[in-house]
Design a protein around this nucleic acid. Structure first.
Lengths: 220, 220
DNA sequence: TCAAATTATACACATTTGTTCACTTTTTGT
DNA sequence: ACAAAAAGTGAACAAATGTGTATAATTTGA
């Protein structure tokens, strides 16, 4: 009863076409539209029907017999299909760019693989923002713990005393309190056991943003 | 060409039915389904078609001729139609019930005057949850600061060592680490300068929930 | 290479569905 | 109350669409 691997790919292609069609038109394609409009190289209504039946048996489509276009995408991401990434009035999508030890999270061409919808009536989300996960306990005195996600407002300058996301020598990204001392820059961890970091002119230094918020999804 | 006011209401009722049907089924009703399934008291397919045509001419529906169920809701709030309940694919509304010094936030009949949409792919939002703002610095060792908003999962029991929202003597609500010591209950503040709270049987004690997350909208 | 399983095709057919039309009923404005 | 306009009805029809069957082509595993 199992079907061949190659066919599984084609089934998926048909499914993709159907979702695309649904997104564009608001209703599902007919078997004949699958033949003529998809690029799946299907020439018979019976074949199209076979794929639909398979998708139904795989649980990806719901179907009522003998009804025209009466197919429903049961995949959880139907909503995603319909309303693509829409910020509604209460939330704003903010990209998640990795963690503070992960090198250059804002390098050109970085593709955000994830984002979170944040309540914009709680967080201040003007301008460009991103999220970063904290690694280590260097900001423990500020109530910023290992694993927390900080909300960062993108900007390349900061005032003394602000908590910044900074990149040193084009390498790792770090979250520290920032002081511009003229001839050098001081990054102060909020952890009594850690030393200040002094950035001299021999190093490249770049501010990526300023921390403006925080999320934590486990309390231990 | 104009039609009567009463009919306009009926047109709207048909439209509402169609949107509801679409929301539930993922596809639009046929003229015959409008007759049998809506409560609009329509007995003829021609009548149903008349309403559809009117909705199309009003710009509320888009239609391709001679196609089955080939209707599209052009209203901007399609997304709202699809994902009801304000919760869209990524967020869940969680009520904000005041602060930890605000008396009984969960008293019967309390009306939440506010709520926030939280990203449910970050926070764990199974079951009933609410939000509470922390007053004071009793949990500072846990990285929970004055003014933070804690996410609380509603439950009336807890394990030893969990951070609970509790109500003592029916009065103020407090956030502390919980230990059931048999003959008494100990609430331990995570602050070296504060004393444990011992709840004896002379007091009433009630667990309202367990802290599972945290938000902060300012980093100083 | 060979046979079985799978996939694909063409076509006929039945059902679903949109559309039209003649007619009736209801509503509206005077 | 009356006529015109609008709305509603039922039935017939045609188009769109899903379904089943017989058959051919392809793929798979040995």
């Amino acid at each position: 009863m199992a079907h061949y691997a190659k066919s599984a790919q084609k089934t998926e292609a048909v499914f993709e076409f159907m979702k695309k069609f649904y997104k564009e038109n608001g209703y599902m394609p007919t078997v004949r539209e699958i033949i003529s409009l998809s690029n799946c190289d299907i020439k018979s209504t019976a074949s199209a029907k076979t794929y639909i039946d398979r998708l139904v048996s795989e649980g990806k489509l719901a179907k009522s017999d003998n009804k025209n276009r009466a197919l429903k995408i049961v995949d959880d991401n139907v909503k995603e299909i319909i309303s693509v990434n829409v910020d509604n009035e209460n939330t704003t999508e903010v990209p998640f760019l990795g963690n503070t030890a992960a090198g250059a999270p804002l390098a050109a061409g970085v593709v955000e693989d994830r984002s979170y919808s944040l309540p914009n009536d709680y967080f201040s989300l003007k301008g460009n923002n991103f999220l970063l996960q904290v690694k280590g306990s260097s900001m423990i005195n500020m109530g910023i713990l290992d694993g927390d996600i900080v909300l960062v407002k993108s900007q390349n300058t900061a005032n003394n005393g602000q908590i910044v996301v900074a990149q040193i020598d084009g390498e790792n990204v770090t979250l520290k309190r920032y002081y511009n001392c003229g001839s050098y820059i001081k990054l102060k961890p909020e952890n009594d056991e850690m030393e200040d970091i002094i950035i001299t002119h021999e190093h490249t230094f770049r501010i990526l943003g300023v921390a403006t918020g925080l999320m934590r999804n486990h309390i231990v």
